[in-house]
């Protein structure tokens, strides 16, 4: 296999990595918000449930969570749920391991939503009470205060920790290969096994590095844009 063919073969895998990255970000980031609000809720039971949930998700390896999501429904219903998905829902698609990808997406989304929720919570709780009270004495509603006063300050504060998390996410996608999802490292291992080529495994690092480079520039730009005020 030529260098070019190897690159294309790995790129196929990297597209799966990017898919996991994008879906986790697009679903996990919004899902983190209700979790954060539950963790800050005045309703004690809700708060407790939410905190325990976040503790479990953050306290257990993501790889284990992927296994649990993938295998447990099968054990419960006595039939491999995600493998059926391959056959029934995704037979028109070229992705042969669609069911497994869905399991990975669910596990990643829940896991990252919990990490994001803690970042949101930290950001929201770091805003001084004076900002809320200044809004209250001006006769604003709670929702106006949150949307027009608090939100942007929170966003400014959470961009750096979110950037860290987002950069970690693209590298975490490699965990998908624990249930044989054909992300980039799985592809490279395939080459090592079938073609006795080891160097593609190391070559995958270049894909990650380039993508992280782009992310760093984009996120740095966002951070800079929000630096116009200080709070």
């Amino acid at each position: 296999m030529s260098f070019w063919e190897v690159t294309l073969f790995l790129w196929d895998g990297f597209l799966i990595s990017l898919l996991i990255f994008a879906v986790t970000l697009l679903c996990g980031a919004p899902l983190g918000l209700p979790i954060a609000f539950c963790s800050m809720s005045k309703c004690k039971p809700l708060k407790a449930v939410s905190k325990v949930f976040v503790w479990i998700i953050r306290g257990v390896p993501l790889m284990l969570q992927i296994f649990i999501i993938y295998y447990v429904p099968g054990l419960l219903f006595q039939t491999p749920v995600f493998s059926h998905m391959d056959r029934f829902f995704f037979q028109n698609y070229s992705i042969s391991d669609a069911g497994r990808i869905v399991a990975v997406l669910i596990a990643f989304t829940i896991n990252y939503a919990c990490y994001f929720s803690e970042i949101y919570r930290g950001g929201i709780e770091s805003i001084s009470r004076g900002q809320y009270e200044a809004g209250y004495v001006l006769g604003l509603t709670k929702s106006q205060i949150f949307r027009k006063i608090i939100l942007k300050q929170v966003i400014q504060r959470i961009v750096p920790p979110m950037s860290n998390e987002i950069i970690t996410l693209i590298k975490d996608t490699a965990l998908a290969n624990c249930i044989i999802v054909c992300e980039i490292i799985k592809q490279a291992k395939e080459l090592a096994a079938t073609k006795a080529m080891v160097w593609p495994l190391f070559y995958t690092g270049v894909f990650y590095l380039l993508f992280v480079g782009i992310l760093t520039i984009v996120l740095g730009q966002v951070e800079k844009k929000l630096k116009y005020f200080r709070s």
């Binding site: 004495v137 942007k152 200080r230």
Partner: peptide, 20 residues
């Protein structure tokens, strides 16, 4: 909220909105 509109309050530490 309506009651608050009768009064204004200037705080010791200003509490201006930093992003505006």
């Amino acid at each position: 909220r309506q009651n608050r509109l009768h009064f204004g309050l200037v705080f010791q530490n200003f509490n201006l909105f930093p992003q505006y």
